[in-house]
């Protein structure tokens, strides 16, 4: 494995408020390129909130206010002048529950490239769709039924379709918000394998409530508790020899 030290995302003193309630408190962390970073912690600890800051999905919640600084490729994204649309085309996202559009499998994947003008011709578009489906490990399962609705797939397939949809717009970063929480163990295993493959080309941040999953797929792990970042570091270290007792308690199952 080639180690690299390029910082892809760098957060500094990120605070998030929902109305008056503070959800995140002074979060600072660096995320390295082409690695899988897992965000773990008990429910309501703010890990999903942090994830949604990175592609500004928190904008959708009117009462949510984000301060501090997050830099992606050294470019500030927490500012009103940020072009959210191009930011989101650079940062893909996969949600907790698979949310394919109620359209055909093909259209699901083709939607992104077509709104961003990534394909000039129809065959270009087809190529993008097929490559993305292949990268998401779904192509062989669906190649005969690209015109069937995306909602007709099984849960695991739907989630991989959503990954393909995210890949299709050529992102550099993929955010995954508990991508396996709605899936059975076999589908989960397939997704985890996929994440391992995707790591070669993308920077991946995954929120998970399963510590085993974090241990299996990630290189770095960050532990959140009550809106604060308690500890972050190499996954091996966090799981075998954490510095903080809270982390210790959490991974050994004393609370959470």
């Amino acid at each position: 494995m080639v180690e690299n030290n390029n910082t892809k995302i760098s957060a500094k003193d990120v605070d998030v408020f929902y109305s008056e309630k503070q959800a995140l408190n002074k979060i600072s962390m660096d995320i390295k390129e082409k690695e899988v970073t897992a965000l773990i912690g008990p429910s309501g600890c703010g890990k999903s909130t942090f994830l949604r800051c990175i592609n500004r999905m928190n904008d959708l919640i009117e009462i949510c206010k984000v301060t501090g600084s997050i830099k992606v490729d050294n470019e500030e994204i927490i500012s009103s002048s940020t072009d959210v649309v191009s930011l989101r085309s650079k940062i893909g996202m996969v949600f907790q529950k698979p949310n394919p559009f109620p359209k055909s499998i093909f259209d699901n994947v083709a939607y992104g490239p077509s709104i961003h003008g990534l394909a000039d011709t129809k065959s270009d578009l087809e190529n993008i769709v097929i490559t993305s489906l292949k990268k998401a490990g779904l192509y062989n399962e669906v190649k005969d039924r690209l015109n069937e609705p995306g909602t007709s797939l099984s849960g695991g397939q739907q989630q991989r379709l959503c990954i393909a949809r995210a890949i299709a717009v050529n992102p550099e970063i993929i955010l995954m918000d508990e991508p396996c929480s709605a899936l059975d163990p076999i589908a989960t295993a397939i997704i985890e394998e996929l994440i391992d493959e995707l790591r070669l080309n993308y920077t991946i941040i995954i929120v998970t409530h399963s510590m085993q999953q974090a241990a299996r797929v990630s290189q770095k792990t960050c532990f959140f508790h009550l809106g604060e970042l308690i500890e972050s570091g190499e996954t091996n270290k966090i799981f075998t020899n954490p510095d903080n007792t809270k982390t210790q308690d959490y991974i050994t199952g004393r609370f959470g």
């Binding site: 999905m57 085309s89 939607y111 992104g112 959503c162 949809r165």
Partner: peptide, 15 residues
């Protein structure tokens, strides 16, 4: 209409 559909579109950079 569930908000997840809209989120899905926004997340891949739709306006």
């Amino acid at each position: 209409v569930p908000p997840s559909i809209k989120e899905g579109a926004l997340a891949i950079g739709a306006t």
